[in-house]
Design a binder for these strands. Sequence first.
DNA 1: TGAATAGTGTCTATAAGACAATATCCC
DNA 2: GGGATATTGTCTTATAGACACTATTCA
Lengths: 260, 260
Amino acid sequence: MPRRPSEPILPHSEQAFLAAYDASKFPRPSVTVDLVLLTVENESLRALLLKRLEHPDRDRWALPGGFVGYDEPVDVAAARVLRDKVGLEGIFVEQLFTFGDPARDPRMRVISVAHFALVSPMTLRRAIDTSRSNTMSLATIRIPWIGEADGPVHAIDSNGTELPLAFDHAHILGKAVARLRGRLNYSPIAFELVGEEFTLRSLQQVHEAILGHPVNKDAFRRRILASGQTSPTGKYQSSVQHRPAELYRFVRQSHTSDHT
Amino acid sequence: MPRRPSEPILPHSEQAFLAAYDASKFPRPSVTVDLVLLTVENESLRALLLKRLEHPDRDRWALPGGFVGYDEPVDVAAARVLRDKVGLEGIFVEQLFTFGDPARDPRMRVISVAHFALVSPMTLRRAIDTSRSNTMSLATIRIPWIGEADGPVHAIDSNGTELPLAFDHAHILGKAVARLRGRLNYSPIAFELVGEEFTLRSLQQVHEAILGHPVNKDAFRRRILASGQTSPTGKYQSSVQHRPAELYRFVRQSHTSDHT
DNA sequence: TGAATAGTGTCTATAAGACAATATCCC
DNA sequence: GGGATATTGTCTTATAGACACTATTCA
């Protein structure tokens, strides 16, 4: 049962607090979550966007998002948006950054806690197909900066046309890319973007798509194999026009933080 | 002039939006900022805490914080809290994480955008002395986990007594420490914690206090000097009972993100 | 002179980059 | 067999850790 701010359960001597923060005197911002759902498909980084059907920013493309309920944890709100708007559950979701510029939404003050989610392209395509929505686009992300410089990015549809982004969502997407790049080197985050079984080459292509530049193949193989995060399945690719690569699985490590 | 949610400037055809989010039907969470103000003094990591004088959690110790104004950017609210409650301006402040558990404040739903700030111990001591508040403590932080595992931490006052922390502030402090540790290796963040001129040894002690373990002296010197982030001043320590170390200055690098 | 820390030089271990050689699939 | 990519091995280079040695200040 939601507890309203106008009828809080008060221990006595709370008057001073409420005097300093009277809800009627100080209107509250709205709080939302926005979701940057990323995948890597065909060696390009892609994000799920929804076409806005209403003003403001009608016909522009926006991240899936929604209001945070009064009694709803923020991470639960993000999972709810992912489930209700995209049809996905149980994938990697992490809080990204909170965007709170008063002018970011022209209607009213909206503070948005952005999250980013990672999923394999197969799983995401299945969810998009199931939703049968024609206002969904899995747009390619073009990043006009290098490293973790951060900044707005561009969204390109499958025809190569740029999709205009709504609100400050170009900045939110950029922040997600910067975070992803930063975490790639010391976190097993890339495994979230491939299926259960994958080749080292496909994992390398995921890294390259995220970083935006080629990585050394030999060093990459050595590093991944030495990390102990993979185990060979003994199975191999089939129907490829070259020597088939071995398939590996991700092995989640026990959290033994080492301090060298 | 603040624009109230009850009287927004509406382009027409916004009815659908407002119907889906009627402020009277869906009470809004309050939004606050909390500030983790960290420094390193005498080889220990310390944070500024304020004793709570009111319920709830009266007599427990809390981070400086405050409500975000309806028309106030979140980062501006953090800077305002820093100025009004601590008396500091112009220091390093960065958004940390948003804490939104519905039960984190027993009075009402409060979503807090936590920030962390870094300052040299000299500057912070001067601010504390100027404020003449006896409800301020620069507490030593004890971290019961290693690496970036994250989790609640303990606050210890100058007598070695543990200070009980208010709300979820032990978790917020822990998140700040984890973030600081993570950024230490690839960001010139440690320079924020020393004065204008510093010895390499003192910078090393800052690193050690943050990481919670000793670092190799030789490699540390080489790495810092090779980074190009320091310039020697030609000046030396005085009144020390050993060979005086040279004083260095921080040289901010131009943002040339390299992609190796 | 001795205690204490600053600073330099060298050797070793580890990880990355470069590149060659061999392996295995489909056509 | 030829084309293509996988996989292995070796050499080189860059960086970190270990450790010895010299330098400089004050008591």
